[in-house]
């Protein structure tokens, strides 16, 4: 971890790091609970967990302002929470309740909160990339220095919308970050079998923009790369492609019995590089956090998630007739 490049007063940076740790642990605990409740039948359809990749969403979103915009993928809980989404409304959406972010119309794969610049999780691989590029165009037209961030996976980087959108953003110098979460697998397929290059970031050269490879399990490395890209974007110098090498600990989805091509040893090896444990240990070593404080923080997070579950359980399901509402804006 690098702490020599700090531009902020020391105490700001210290408290920011503690908030980043809290955010990462919130994502993990939220998803552990979501997975349990999915297995128990309280959450429907499909749930994709982000566990193991928390440093990417948190590192990038820590470099953003509230009015900066992001778009996410089918594996979207982490991005939502890192951008500041409300735990209660998120969990209620997973529970299919009226009080959820989408009033029960979206579920796990379609959580959005436009009030915090979260333009939605998107169930189509690469589908969100052009849309958030449009948010980047809006930010440029507005001229107030806002930026927009596209989160996507290694799989999406092989699809047309990735290439078409980056070409446009580079040509128009849109204030964009394209953040590839390379977790080495495109659903059940080994990413290296579908990608001729070892680094997705190398594709940036084809569009004349910077491409950066970052250790996606090192939250401060991600943060610093994002901060540099955000500064560049706010200064009107255009987009950056950041590739975060990371790994998901769990299967493509939480559905039981699905095939997983990944060797057990590989999964275990990446668990040893746990981005949360690594960051917490580092903060303890620096004297910014004690074991007790870390356990207290975790207990607070678990309590907040328990509250979110209670909120969801107590919330009503939408009236069936609401299925025909919201097709059009009035």
């Amino acid at each position: 971890m690098t702490l020599t490049t700090e531009k902020q007063p020391r105490f700001h940076r210290d408290s920011k790091q503690l908030e980043m740790l809290r955010s990462m642990q919130t994502i993990r605990r939220f998803e552990e609970r979501a997975s349990d409740d999915y297995q128990a039948g309280a959450i429907y359809g499909v749930v994709h967990c982000y566990i193991g990749e928390e440093a990417v969403a948190v590192g990038v979103c820590a470099a953003l302002n509230r009015d900066d915009q992001i778009i996410s993928t089918h594996r979207g809980h982490g991005h939502c929470l890192a951008k500041g989404a409300d735990l209660n409304r998120m969990m209620a959406e997973l529970y299919g309740r009226q009080t959820g972010y989408c009033k029960g119309k979206g579920g796990s794969m379609h959580i959005a909160d436009f009030s915090i610049g979260m333009l939605g999780a998107n169930g189509i691989v690469a589908g969100g990339i052009p849309i958030v590029t449009g948010a980047g165009l809006a930010a440029q037209l507005e001229g107030k220095g806002r930026v927009a961030v596209s989160f996507f996976g290694d799989g999406a980087s092989n699809a047309g919308p990735f290439h078409e959108s980056i070409n446009i953003a580079a040509t128009w110098k849109l204030p964009m970050l394209y953040v590839c979460e390379n977790n080495l697998y495109s659903a059940g397929t080994i990413a290296a079998d579908t990608l001729a290059l070892s680094d997705v970031a190398a594709r940036a050269a084809g569009y004349g923009i910077p491409g950066v490879v970052v250790d996606g399990n090192d939250v401060m490395a991600v943060y610093e790369a994002a901060e540099a890209a955000v500064s560049r974007a706010r200064a009107g110098q255009g987009p950056t492609l950041i590739e975060c090498k990371t790994y998901r600990w769990r299967g493509h989805t939480e559905r039981p019995g699905q095939e997983d091509p990944r060797p057990k040893e590989e999964i275990e090896e990446w668990r040893q590089r746990d981005p949360i444990n690594r960051f917490a240990t580092n903060l303890i070593d620096q004297g910014l956090l004690t074991e007790d404080a870390w356990q207290k923080m975790d207990a607070e997070i678990l309590a907040a998630i328990e509250d979110a579950v209670k909120f969801s359980e107590e919330s009503p399901f939408p009236e069936p007739e609401a299925a025909v509402e919201d097709i059009f804006a009035d």
């Binding site: 849309i131 980047g136 959108s165 446009i168």
Partner: peptide
């Protein structure tokens, strides 16, 4: 700024319209 020629990439500029519309344009 307000009148732009796009690359011949209908998927991208259609999506760009969606994102800009959701951002107040």
């Amino acid at each position: 700024d307000r009148v732009r020629a796009t690359p011949i990439a209908e998927g991208a500029f259609t999506g760009i319209a969606i994102g800009a519309a959701g951002s107040g344009y």
